[in-house]
Amino acid sequence: MTATLSDFFVYSTRTFKALFQPPFRSKDTFQQLEFVTWQSLPVIVFCVSFAAMVTIMESSFHMKLMVQNDSLVPGFASLLILRELGVVVSSLLLTSRVGAGLAAEVGSMQVTEQVDALRMLGIDPIRFLVIPRLIACTVGGVILSLIANLVCLYCAMLISELKLGYSSGSFLTGMRAFVSYKDLVFAMIKGGCFGTVIPIVSCFFGLRCESGAEGVGKATTNSVVVASVAIIVMDFVLTYIFSHFY
């Protein structure tokens, strides 16, 4: 365990150092960005829409139960969506889709000696494999958190109009009372941070992958579990830090 943590520290340090060293593989980075952002968009939009709809319906149900009034639901739900739901749900989805894919891809390369072949050709696997994915996931995390939040808010507004009877105007008025532009900015920062964690953790497990199909499977599982836990913990830390700025 200590050895793994120490390896992870060394690897992360090398990765962040390599981030600023040319050559920058822009073509690969854009290809990865397309994979991370565009190809993940449908599943993220679909899932966060339902999460937002459930959130607003549950909030309304419980508020009516407790205080016999759900007039504050648009504001509260918008706050919850912007600060937590949109970015955390989209990041966890990104972990299972992109993180698992990266760990399996890099793990297969490790097992089939492609990583050793890169090293033999004088190419640093971190710069070649990790950096383009790191940049793509960080930028993708920011973009997806923004889109996820907007979609969530739109769906929440739709449900509050169709099911709870609030017009879009009153939803937006309620939302404005609770939400500020800072919430959106902090959500995007969180998205970028979570996006950074995913490829770092996934590629770490991929590069340490043991031989065989079992090794690749183990690397993939470990990467998804560790990245998900890291996102939840990081969410707490960032929320605590941001709470000083409201």
Binding site: Q114, A117, M120, L121, G122
Partner: peptide, 23 residues
């Protein structure tokens, strides 16, 4: 170190057990 190994690897070529071609 890994970086110092690059010139050494430059004069070596290795054919691996598996083809190790980039897919």
């Amino acid at each position: 170190s890994e970086r110092e190994m690059f010139p050494v690897r430059r004069m070596c070529g290795m054919v691996f057990q598996q083809p190790a071609l980039f897919d």
